[in-house]
Amino acid sequence: MEYAAPATLDNALALAHETDGQVRFLAGGTDVLVQLRSGLFEPDLVIDIKQIPGMLDVTRSPEGAWTIGAAVPGRILGTIEGLRDDWPGIVEAMELIGSTQIQSRASLVGNLCNASPAADGIPAMVAAGATVSIAGVDGLRTAEVADILMAPGQTNLKKGEIVTSIDLPARVAGSADAYLRFIPRTEMDIAVAGCAVNLTVKDSQVCTARVSLGAVAPTVLLVPDAATAICGTCLDETALNDLAAACRAACRPIDDKRGTVAFRTDIAGVLARRAAILAYRRAQERESA
């Protein structure tokens, strides 16, 4: 196995492109190193992307859009001025992953590329309508987060492509998100189900919403029916019940050591209600602010 830490994106792309056999990119390494040690794969080349300019940067455009570099440790997100105000759900999702030590290495892009159906970082990004910037030898492209997820552990990134950043759109007033997951413990666990809600409120009424579910299907789901259920409402009991029902209807979970089909489906509805209430309350605060 070879290890390389190229100093430029072009070098990294060339290395990845030219290498025969399996290539893995290394950001924080909190998935890659564990998988290596447990013998899940034996790559021919590991490319550490942390030396590449921009990979550890978080920037905000004058319009308010955010760009989070692929290797930015999750622990940093909460310390960046304005990010939690704009995207509290994304920051809190990252802060649920592993422990303080893990978050000091783990990145949002890594969480995305590992493509676990139960990834805590992904539902919040999907609900946010986040896009990713992808570099390849043929140039740059962008894609919606939800569109690159194919199956457990699988993305549709082409060989040699590198996700360079997560890009979050600018916020309008009265917007907020929230992410909740269910685990049997209080930390250091994997989501049995997770739900992110991102919405905008005007005059106490939900005008736009995106609802995403994790750990209840082979990939993280965007649930348009769940968004429809709360749009145009003041998140009254009927709307919340409709939201929960829409989420449960979208679930296609499995029975496994972490939970049953019935339990996951049930919990998805409960989490959706609670996350919607949380996002709604935050959005109202931001509307009046």
Binding site: P184, R185, T186, E187, M188, D189, I190, D256, K257, R258
Partner: peptide
């Protein structure tokens, strides 16, 4: 200990063998 239909142990690690953590 969770056994699958294949008779094999499904949770041979601390991630899925859920011992309490301090905050529990």
């Amino acid at each position: 200990y969770v056994y699958g239909d294949d008779g094999c142990l499904q949770n041979a690690g601390f991630l899925d063998y859920r011992m309490p953590v301090a905050s529990d």
